[in-house]
């Protein structure tokens, strides 16, 4: 098999990595926003925001890399998905505008910062919910004729996509709560553990719902998971997910700092792997595959050189950033 096979496959993997990193990294800082209404205490909210303030901008850049990567490597998929999911993408962007500026505005607005608290919380929740709608809308399938989107403006709206939206909000909130458990000190740490327990239950319910719903709706997905020998090969995915959930729970019970967050990250990665298994090789289910929508090999190679050369560097200085701002954030303390 030549370049025509491997290049799109490699690019699908690169975008998969970018999207997974986005979901985990921006997931916890969006989660912080979703958890804002859980406390009314101003200093706790300060503490929550400070725990992610140095990171959010870098985290969100992975979303641009995901979108940009799709544009570069699969322009035909980009040109179908964006018009098809027009309204949820719009909602996500506007929500990100509100919560992004809130990181700066909230401090300057003090003591009149209530509006920006609401913007941060509402924007974060709406961004998470719209990302769920986008995921659900994509899984639900997009109407395509001659390689172009030919459906209606509300095709993405379904009970399933709303379920995905709620699942995303709960999932990000769990990431946020376990992040707080690891990265703040004082009352908030214990509170976050309490939130995390409730959210873990909710996330498991949503994961089960999505895992049962998709094979029931789509025969191709049922076939992938529930025929032999696939059943045996793929059985580790749900089993490992349960083990991760167990790790989160026992970590929370034993007041461990890192294991609940790590377990949640594991659940997200496995969930993502599950979705990829269900849908591969489709990039635009149920009609366009990774290979149907691939851009010019020249462009994919040119961009891949940049990714191979620069991604390790980016990961290195991102890690340096996280190392610089390590340690727990205490009440009444920012980064100075």
């Amino acid at each position: 098999m030549g370049m025509e096979f491997w290049l799109p496959a490699i690019w699908a993997a690169v975008i998969g990595v970018a999207v997974s990193l986005y979901v985990i990294l921006d997931g916890f800082d969006l989660g912080i926003g979703i958890l804002f209404p859980f406390t009314k205490d101003e200093s706790e909210r300060d503490q929550m925001m400070n725990s992610v303030a140095p990171f959010w901008d870098g985290n969100e850049t992975w979303l641009i890399l995901g979108g940009g990567g799709l544009f570069v490597a699969f322009p035909a998929a980009y040109a179908v998905i964006m018009p098809a999911l027009y309204l949820p993408v719009l909602l996500m962007l506007l929500a990100l505008v509100f919560r992004g500026v809130a990181f700066e505005f909230r401090w300057i607005a003090k003591p009149d910062h209530r509006f920006w608290d609401a913007a941060f919380a509402g924007g974060s929740a709406l961004a998470a919910f719209s990302q769920g709608l986008i995921l659900g809308g994509l899984l639900d399938g997009i109407t395509v004729t001659d390689g172009r989107f030919s459906g209606g403006p509300l095709d993405w709206l379904s009970p399933f996509s709303i379920l995905c939206g709620c699942a995303m909000v709960a999932g990000y909130a769990l990431l946020g709560a376990t992040w707080l458990n690891m990265r703040v000190a004082g009352h908030l740490e214990a509170k976050a553990r309490g939130w995390a327990k409730g959210l873990l239950v909710a996330v498991l319910v949503f994961m089960v719902a999505v895992s049962l719903w998709t094979p029931l709706l789509y025969e191709r997905i049922a076939e992938r998971w529930f025929t032999l020998p696939n059943l045996f090969y793929l059985a580790p995915v749900p089993i490992l997910t349960l083990l991760c959930a167990l790790m989160v729970w026992t970590g929370l019970e034993k007041d461990q700092p890192a294991s609940p967050f790590v377990g949640t990250v594991g659940m997200f990665l496995l969930g993502f792997a599950g979705l990829a298994i269900s849908n591969f090789p489709y990039l635009v289910p149920p009609s366009l595959t990774v290979w149907d929508t691939a851009g010019a090999p020249e462009s994919q190679v040119f961009m891949l050189i940049g990714v191979v050369a620069l991604l390790p560097l980016i990961l290195a200085y991102t890690a340096f950033m996280y190392w610089t701002f390590r340690g727990r954030v205490r009440a009444g303390e920012g980064y100075h």
Binding site: G68, V72, G295, S299, G306, V307
Partner: peptide, 14 residues
């Protein structure tokens, strides 16, 4: 997209 895409992609990476 084949032409403009990588330019934007390099903007993100660099």
């Amino acid at each position: 997209g084949n032409v403009i895409g990588p330019l934007i992609g390099y903007e993100v990476l660099t």
